[in-house]
């Protein structure tokens, strides 16, 4: 069964939230709640309460990146110092620990930041193609709800939106 997209634009978060709440409660057949995407011009933290636990996993990237960076840093530096052409410094051992820790720390941060950003791109699915329905209004001042649902469910969903003062509904052209 083919699915279609539908974008509803709202004027404010209250309306959009109410619409989402109702959609979730309505349990419409042919519409999976996870297929609902909220688009907003600003980050709206409270929306998560309604959308449920959709978690972010970037922090695991961060941890891995930082640890890797630190370890890599330490061993690269110490290994380089202990390589075939050891550079002897009077009064200091060939592998001196305090300066190596400085660089280890820098590499720890570097790894952490870089891999976090990589994690962000992966987790947020960026770079991404434009989704089928998009309105520039979303980047201005309107809240968009993008749903993907079976053809038959569309009418019901639209009804929910209209109940909550939707400004505009865009539909994907039929196939």
């Amino acid at each position: 069964m083919s699915q279609r997209h539908l974008l509803a634009l709202f004027n404010n978060f209250e309306d959009a939230e109410a619409a989402i709440y109702e959609l979730r409660a309505a349990n419409i057949k042919g519409f999976n709640f996870d297929d609902l995407t909220l688009k907003s011009p600003i980050e709206h933290h409270e929306v998560e309460n309604i959308l449920g636990q959709r978690s972010a996993k970037v922090q695991w990237f961060t941890l891995a990146g930082a640890l890797m960076g630190g370890l890599l840093g330490f061993f690269l530096i110490s290994g380089a110092q202990a390589n075939f052409y050891a550079q002897m410094k009077g009064g200091k051992p060939i592998v001196p620990l305090p300066p190596n820790f400085v660089l280890t720390f820098e590499m720890f941060v570097l790894g952490g930041v870089f891999i976090s950003v990589l994690g962000f791109l992966i987790c947020a699915g960026l770079p991404a193609r434009r989704s089928p329905l998009y309105s520039a209004k979303v980047s201005e001042d309107q809240i968009g709800i993008l749903v993907k649902a079976d053809e038959p469910a569309m009418a019901k969903i639209k009804g929910v939106f209209l109940n909550h003062g939707v400004l505009e509904i865009q539909e994907e052209a039929g196939k």
């Binding site: 995407t37 972010a56 699915g125 989704s131």
Partner: peptide, 24 residues
């Protein structure tokens, strides 16, 4: 990068931004 301001993007964005801030 094709940013649309979806909830998924915002969610990860927030965590990432916070993480980098912590490192910085």
């Amino acid at each position: 990068l094709g940013w649309e301001g979806t909830d998924r993007q915002w969610r990860n964005f927030r965590v990432t931004y916070l993480t980098i801030a912590c490192f910085l």
